[in-house]
C-alpha cells in the first residue's frame, strides 16, 4: 500500500513538473475573446491587464465598450457566470472607425505617436504624421494629446465593403388561424 502510494506520488510529482502550465490559461482564453482595441475604456491599461483582472476574478465582465454585448456574452459563457447588462460607460456602441490625421494641420509634435497603443502612427519630430489605417484599432487614445486637434475618427467599412446579409425576416403562417379559415 505504501509502495503504491509512493509510486503514484512519484508519478504525480513527475507529471506536475513535466506538464507544468506556463502562465494562466484562463487569462489567455479571456484575452482571445477581448477585441484588442487597447482603448482602456474598461479602466485597465489594455486588453491583457483586463483579461488578467478577469482571470483573477476581481472585476466585472461587462466593462468592454468596443466588444459590446457579444463579448460580454462570450465571457459569461467561458467563465460560467450569469450575463450582466453592460456597464453605463460601455453601453454606447460606436461604428467601427479609424483615426485620420489632417496633414495640413499636423505640427509634428509626436504626442500621438506616444499615445498609440499599437504603433499605428508614422512620423517623427517636426515631420508630418500619418496613420496606418489597416493597423489602427480606432481606440481614440490619440485624440486627447493632440495640441492642434488635427485627428478625427472616420467610420470604416461603409457602403458595399461593410455590407452583409441580414438575418432573414419573413412572414410565418399561423397554422391554427389558417385551419380555422379553411374550416
Amino acid at each position: 500500500m505504501i509502495g503504491l502510494a509512493v509510486a503514484l506520488g512519484a508519478v504525480l510529482g513527475f507529471a506536475s513538473l513535466k506538464f507544468k502550465v506556463e502562465g494562466n490559461p484562463l487569462v489567455e482564453k479571456v484575452d482571445a475573446i477581448l477585441p484588442q482595441i487597447q482603448c482602456g475604456q474598461c479602466g485597465f491599461p489594455g486588453c491583457k491587464p483586463y483579461a488578467e483582472a478577469i482571470g483573477a476574478g476581481n472585476t466585472a465582465i461587462n466593462l468592454c465598450a468596443p466588444g459590446g454585448e457579444a463579448t460580454m456574452l462570450r465571457l459569461a459563457d467561458l467563465l460560467g457566470v450569469e450575463p450582466q447588462p453592460l456597464a453605463a460607460d460601455a453601453a454606447v456602441q460606436k461604428p467601427k472607425q479609424v483615426a485620420l490625421i489632417d496633414e495640413q494641420t499636423c505640427i509634428g509634435c509626436t504626442l500621438c505617436l506616444q499615445a498609440c497603443p499599437v504603433d499605428a502612427i508614422v512620423g517623427a519630430a517636426k515631420q508630418m504624421h500619418t496613420i496606418i489605417a489597416s493597423e489602427c484599432t480606432g481606440c481614440e487614445l490619440c485624440l486627447p494629446p493632440c495640441p492642434v486637434d488635427c485627428i478625427t475618427m472616420e467610420p470604416v467599412d461603409v457602403g458595399m465593403n461593410g455590407w452583409k446579409w441580414q438575418y432573414p425576416v419573413y412572414p410565418i403562417s399561423d397554422v391554427r388561424n389558417d385551419a380555422e379559415v379553411a374550416a
Binding site: V118, E135, W165
Partner: peptide
C-alpha cells in the same frame, strides 16, 4: 437566405479576429 446570413456573419467574425490578432501582436511588441 439563412445560409448567406450565416456565411457573412462568419466572414465578418473572421475579419475581426484577424484584426484583433494583429492589434495584440503590435501592442505586445510596443
Amino acid at each position: 437566405q439563412f445560409y448567406r446570413f450565416a456565411k457573412s456573419e462568419i466572414a465578418e467574425h473572421e475579419k475581426e479576429r484577424k484584426a484583433a490578432d494583429l492589434a495584440r501582436e503590435r501592442h505586445e511588441f510596443r
